[in-house]
């Protein structure tokens, strides 16, 4: 059980103080998959980071399994963190280490003996389907594979909680689905509590059981996913839900552009802005050997076709230069 009691987080600056989390009280039951959703800047990541003490609350208390995280001394906090895995939007792998060594890192931190460590890493590699990539470096992996390494690494010390900070936001829809499936399996097999922070309603909808919606640091609505989807009360929740529902007649496609053409980005963007589409860069697909940037484009199919032709003509112009 993870509990927030009247938790606030303020950032004091010279002139002003900004409030990132505003008197939040929440209870996340053990073994569930819990979604925290909101637009960017809503304070959801800050809230998540208070669970493993990366951020300390300015007021209030955070409990994980009846232990007050915000009161732990440094050494206690460090050993407590070993039992809480975390995965990130941009993976944060060590590029100087191979896949195997990356997964071994948390075990080294926990002073696990070499024999147990190797066995554990082999098991984790197999669990996330990367046995063949064990000796590759992160730079040789795709975005989805990198996140699998991130997940294996987060599971290394048998955590009771897995914190996911926008874990699929840098991935394309296909990869997102496979990562979400993996997370769901992990929850079912190991009974780990998953806390998922995201701005994508589809993520919450597909795997979460309970959720809360955040806006301006406050939790504005919470409940089961079915409840909130069928009967959203707060305007923000309605917006999030209807956006998602509207996207039923919306199409989603992944387009890409050669890095070289980015120098014309201003004019390209101007052209694209005439069409009401939602455009998101997918940094997870960046690859040294293939200098292209991929976008997720959401919108009506005719608009997407238009955007596609804009990017295409940019590519051709780029070639003629």
């Amino acid at each position: 059980m993870i509990q927030f009691h009247h938790v606030s987080k303020r950032y004091e600056d010279k002139q002003k103080s900004t409030i990132a989390v505003d008197r939040v009280s929440l209870a996340i039951p053990e073994g569930t998959i819990y979604g925290i959703i909101g637009f960017s800047g809503a304070g959801k990541s800050t809230l998540l980071r208070m669970i493993n003490g990366l951020e300390k609350p300015s007021e209030g208390q955070v409990f994980v399994a009846d232990q007050e995280i915000s009161q732990l001394a440094d050494t206690q906090l460090r050993s407590r963190r070993q039992k809480m895995g975390m995965i990130f939007q941009h993976f944060h792998l060590l590029w100087s280490r191979t896949v195997r060594e990356n997964i071994a890192f948390p075990l080294e931190i926990a002073d696990v003996d070499p024999a147990t460590l190797n066995k554990k890493v082999d098991y984790l590699l197999e669990r996330v389907g990367l046995t063949e990539k064990a000796d590759d470096y992160p730079s040789q992996l795709s975005g989805g594979q990198k996140q699998r390494v991130g997940i294996a690494r987060a599971l290394a010390n048998d955590p009771s909680v897995l914190l996911c900070d926008e874990a699929t936001s840098a991935l394309d829809p296909e990869t997102t689905r496979s990562i979400l499936k993996l997370l769901q399996e992990i929850n079912q097999e190991l009974g780990i509590t998953l806390v998922i922070v995201t701005h994508e309603m589809s993520v919450v909808q597909s795997i979460c059981r309970q959720m809360s919606v955040m806006d301006h640091g406050k939790v504005i609505e919470e409940g089961t996913v079915e409840e909130l989807f069928s009967n959203p009360k707060h305007p923000i929740t309605k917006r999030l839900v209807t956006n998602e529902l509207k996207s039923v007649d919306h199409v989603e496609e992944v387009l890409s552009i050669h890095l070289y053409d980015l120098r014309n980005w201003n004019s390209i963007q101007q052209l694209i802005s005439r069409h009401p589409v939602h455009l998101q860069i997918l940094p997870g697909n960046l690859n040294v050997h293939q200098p292209v940037i991929s976008f997720r484009v959401q919108g009506k199919s005719e608009d997407i076709t238009a955007v596609k032709s804009i990017l295409q003509s940019a590519n051709e112009e780029g070639l003629s230069c």
């Binding site: 990366l54 070993q82 809480m84 975390m86 931190i109």
Partner: peptide, 8 residues
């Protein structure tokens, strides 16, 4: 930060 989250 990832290393910190692992308790390093």
């Amino acid at each position: 930060e990832a290393a910190q989250s692992m308790g390093a």
